[in-house]
Design a protein around this nucleic acid. Structure first.
Lengths: 141, 141
DNA sequence: GTGACTGCAAATAATTTGCATTACA
DNA sequence: TGTAATGCAAATTATTTGCAGTCAC
């Protein structure tokens, strides 16, 4: 199933309509190789949907995030950026050179969580992990 | 050595002056039990330093972050918040109920990093980890 | 004494909202 | 067809900057 089909299905399941505008936003995020700000998305999606409004981009991103179809990416200094999320629980690796984002799965950090729980007295429920480095392409050049 | 002394020392080392305003900002962050936005800091620090300007808060936070004396905390939905960082490499555990932030150390995620590197082809250099859960006080009530 | 630091106000950027109109299901 | 979704413009919020005056070292 393609990304678009998946998103369309999820939208329908939650009674959201698949409008031209949302379609354009989803296409942009699907093709994106790096996290995109709302403004980035707007600019790109406008090519496909010239009468798109920036407010709609914000509203659409909000819905997609709510449905976990995209994930917020916090970049080094300033936050913000959105990237398509393929799996229900994945994390992102971000290239510090070209900004490319790749999702990876399988984060067994149970030992770290146990250690943190011991130190802080917290009962950990969620975690948030992002790796920064260089993608292979950038590394080789 | 107290937090303040530590910060003062670091500022001096880098030829920054310890002004009344900076002192107030540092005090606020030292006493803070949860991450604070620039606006939060401004409001609190004004009690101690009535003629403080918001722009100064932004400028001070920028310096403190540059010196790794505070750390940016990305909250669940919206980003942003700053918290004092005691160690050069620590992570934060955040209580989802009361927002309290506690730093912990010792994050051996080398296995996760190796696995991610294998999956993505990335050469990982840095990581960013935050745990969310409930602090013991909130858990017991 | 003097250069770094400040407050203020204005500029800029980012995000949200109200509302009349449009278009998906 | 009915209602959710839209564009636009205005409102709000967040952040940055220029500059004349001030203060820590």
């Amino acid at each position: 199933m393609s990304d678009l089909e998946n998103v369309a299905q999820q939208l329908a399941r939650h009674k959201f309509k698949l409008t031209r505008q949302r379609h354009a936003v989803i296409d942009v995020l699907t093709d994106a190789r790096s996290p995109m700000t709302p403004a980035n998305v707007f600019e790109s999606a406008q090519r496909q949907c010239p009468d798109l409004g920036l407010a709609t981009v914000y509203r659409t991103l909000e819905i997609l995030e709510e449905l976990s179809l995209i994930r917020r990416v916090h970049l080094d200094e300033h936050c913000e950026g959105f990237a398509l999320s393929a799996t229900s629980h994945g994390h992102h690796a971000i290239c510090m050179q070209c900004n490319r984002v790749v999702e990876f799965t399988g984060c067994d950090i149970s030992q770290v969580m146990a250690s943190a729980a011991r130190q802080t007295g917290f009962h950990i429920e969620e975690h948030w992990l992002e790796l920064m480095g260089m993608c292979n392409d950038c590394y080789q050049s």
